[in-house]
């Protein structure tokens, strides 16, 4: 078994085990079945924190070593982190509607989490806006380091301000106020999602490596065409030499249509279920949250696989 297959197998097995525990244990005294949403919401939020801490580490190491592998590492983690921040907010909204009674409210924890999402979306946008690879790596590394201030802000928001959102469960000052069945389900979820993170990171880093390889090949080709006078666009400031940007190869129109159709279907499904919110049973809410969590994860995995395939094909075409 190759190492990547091993991680994928371990992640799937761990998710299955975590699901069995989360759905198999008894009901919570106050919330009944609704408490089960905790076991997907909290692991998603944990991965958001973990991803952005990894982005910080990767950014710091890039600035120290100037090794682009660390830049790819940081950027990959930021994208995975944006995915799980979005998922944590979406699952939080489902849990909020079923327990608090509202999808959203202007509570400090909710607002600061949304701000964190937008700052890291900004990080991804910043990367796309800088064609010079070294400038892109350096600038996004600084943002990756600065962005970390939001994690304590988000995490301690429930302590610093009076909020609707409950206090932290795991790092509670009075110890974990949680009976054993719920603890085992929560920790099983945290372990399983951490393995999912490893799998997603390996794929995302592979994609980043292929993208950089494609850029290198295109640059090398241009250098051949232009002769020795032109240096590779890998170096900062080289854009003055007016290297023409190669247009990206046209994407398959059928794939785009298919992706749009899937997205439209998902949005419509979420809208229909949400509009039926008042008639959902407690198990219905749990099913809704778990479906959103795992459909989103599978969609992200499929999207990563598709991007890897397309980029690999482009690399092969150029080389």
């Amino acid at each position: 078994m190759t190492r990547s297959r091993f991680f994928e197998f371990a992640a799937v097995a761990a998710v299955a085990a975590a699901l069995a525990v989360a759905l198999g244990i008894g009901e919570e005294r106050t919330m009944g079945n609704l408490a089960r949403v905790l076991f997907v919401h909290v692991p998603s939020a944990w991965l958001a924190y973990l991803s952005f801490v990894v982005t910080l580490v990767g950014s710091g190491l890039y600035l120290r070593t100037k090794d682009l592998r660390w830049d790819r590492f940081a950027a990959s983690s930021a994208e995975v982190g944006v995915f799980f921040t979005t998922l944590a907010i979406a699952l939080g909204m489902i849990w909020g509607r079923s327990t608090w009674g509202v999808w959203w409210t202007w509570d400090a924890r909710l607002v600061l989490t949304a701000v964190m999402l937008f700052v890291y979306l900004g990080y991804l946008a910043l990367r796309r806006s800088i064609p010079d690879r070294l400038a892109r790596a350096r600038r996004s590394a600084w943002l990756g380091i600065l962005g970390i201030v939001q994690i304590p802000l988000v995490h301690f928001s429930v302590v610093w301000w009076r909020t609707l959102h409950q206090q932290a469960t795991i790092f509670n000052t009075e110890g974990m106020q949680m009976d054993w069945p719920f603890r085992s389900a929560l920790f099983a979820g945290l372990a399983a999602y951490t393995l999912v993170y490893v799998v997603l990171m390996r794929r995302r880093i592979e994609l980043a490596r292929l993208e950089d390889r494609f850029e290198d090949l295109v640059a090398a080709e241009e250098r051949e065409v232009a002769g020795e006078a032109v240096t590779a666009p890998r170096y900062e400031g080289s854009t003055e030499l007016e290297i023409e940007e190669t247009p990206p190869p046209a994407r398959s129109r059928r794939a785009v249509v298919l992706a749009l159709a899937i997205a439209a279907f998902l949005v419509a499904a979420v809208a229909v279920v949400s509009s039926q919110a008042t008639s959902l049973s407690r198990w219905g809410w749990v099913a809704y949250a778990y479906t959103v969590a795992y459909v989103a994860m599978l969609t992200y995995v499929a999207w990563l696989a598709w991007r890897i395939t397309v980029t690999r094909r482009r690399v092969e075409e150029v080389s």
Binding site: E28, W100, V102, Q166, Q167, Q177, D179, F182
Partner: peptide, 18 residues
Amino acid sequence: EMMVKHDEQYRTEDGGEY
């Protein structure tokens, strides 16, 4: 307008207290 605020305590139905 009403919102329910649940705390960070998760207890089994038979009243287990941690």
